[in-house]
Amino acid sequence: MTIYAPYRSLRGISAIAVLLAIGAVGCSDVSDAVDSAGDSAKKVARQRSVFSLDIGDCYNPTGKAVGTAYTVEIVPCEEAHEGQVVGEFAIDKGKEYPGDDGVSAVADNRCPVEAQKYAPDTWALPKGVALFYYTPTKESWATGDRAVSCTYTAEKGTFSGSLETAKSLRPEQNTYLRGSNAVYEALWANQPEKDTVEDDLAGYKTQAKAVAAALDTHVKGLDGIEGTEVGKLRATLTKAAGNWRKAANAADADAFYIAYDPAFTGIDPDKSVAARRELGLATTVPADEAEVWAG
């Protein structure tokens, strides 16, 4: 999943211009002006600094969705909105600003983990929603700002309702999602930079080892969940784990490829649809994941 990074800022946006505009309206337009003023005042009252965002806040950016951000408009989650804060954490990286890339690297690693605590089933997210984050700038870092706010934000349009699902999930649903999410996180978080196995066999073997370990944990979790389709998925993933281990122990690129093909196919998200249905979870494979396995 691609993660984008709007940034925090020390500067705020003044509401004075909005409020003063009311006095420049002619008498015949008083009614419209009152309505407009009411809407403007409501919007101003909802504005909050990005430094004070809390988990669960639904909001609309007051400027561009990607770039430097100063304030956001906080709205009830029942109303249409562009984003919701689904996780937050503080960066602990010494006294020196690690640079934009350094801060983004930390957020890239942590935000998926934090977001899944709030909304574990990524398949249930509204279409077109992606993971974004607000991070400190060099200037705000100097004032002690270390906070990162992880958000799910609509890349186009808006969505309604809260994305929080963790509290409503049954134990077996949580167990399944925790294991499944860890498998794909191991796959993508360990993706080598080189495009071919020949150029980085060690890197691809490291990735395979991480996926195999995550699959072993996932399969162990499924052992305690009843259901015919869950049992079938457990068998499929057990076989896939074996192939990932073979890839991790491959002596050369050819051996790796032989093991990798069935290993990768074995974790095709489409293979988990029936088990998800049995567990009462979302069953539509996200478009970006479906595209990857479609080849």
Rank of each mutant, 00 (worst) to 15 (best):
V129A: 09
L237P: 04
A247I: 10
V86T: 12
P192F: 03
V85R: 00
F264C: 12
D101V: 12
R170W: 08
A107F: 09
M1F: 11
T265E: 14
D261V: 11
Y152L: 04
K93R: 12
L237I: 12
A107T: 02
A45N: 09
Y97G: 08
G179Q: 03
A69F: 00
V86F: 04
N109G: 08
A290P: 04
I74V: 15
A5S: 12
L177Q: 05
R46E: 14
L222T: 11
A263K: 05
D288L: 06
A189Y: 01
I258A: 14
G26A: 10
A287I: 02
L169S: 06
K127N: 13
L19F: 13
T236R: 13
A37S: 06
V219G: 06
T238N: 09
N243M: 08
R11T: 05
K232M: 06
D268H: 13
A282S: 15
V50D: 00
S180C: 07
Y70D: 01
W123D: 09
I22A: 14
A15L: 00
L163I: 00
V85Q: 01
G12T: 11
K167N: 15
E139W: 12
Q191K: 08
W293L: 06
T143A: 10
T228Y: 11
V75P: 00
G161W: 02
L19I: 14
K239D: 14
A253S: 13
N181Q: 06
P126W: 01
A240P: 08
A90Y: 10
Y4Q: 14
D92H: 14
A130S: 13
S160M: 03
S14G: 09
D54K: 14
K43L: 05
L201P: 04
A259G: 07
L222M: 14
A80F: 07
G266K: 04
P98Q: 04
M1N: 08
A235R: 03
V292Q: 13
A248G: 15
A251P: 00
K138L: 08
V148F: 00
A182S: 11
V72I: 08
A290R: 12
Y184L: 09
V75C: 08
T137I: 01
P171Y: 06
I267M: 07
A45I: 10
L281D: 01
A186E: 06
S180K: 10
Y97P: 04
T238W: 06
T236E: 15
T165F: 01
I91M: 08
V197I: 15
T2G: 06
Y134P: 00
E82M: 06
K205C: 05
L19R: 15
T2W: 12
T175Y: 13
V148C: 01
A5N: 09
L125Y: 00
P6L: 00
E229N: 14
A37P: 04
V106D: 03
P6Y: 00
A37E: 07
A33D: 08
P76H: 11
A235S: 13
P171G: 06
E278N: 07
I91Q: 10
G295C: 10
Y7P: 02
T265I: 11
V197E: 11
R178G: 11
L53R: 02
A182M: 05
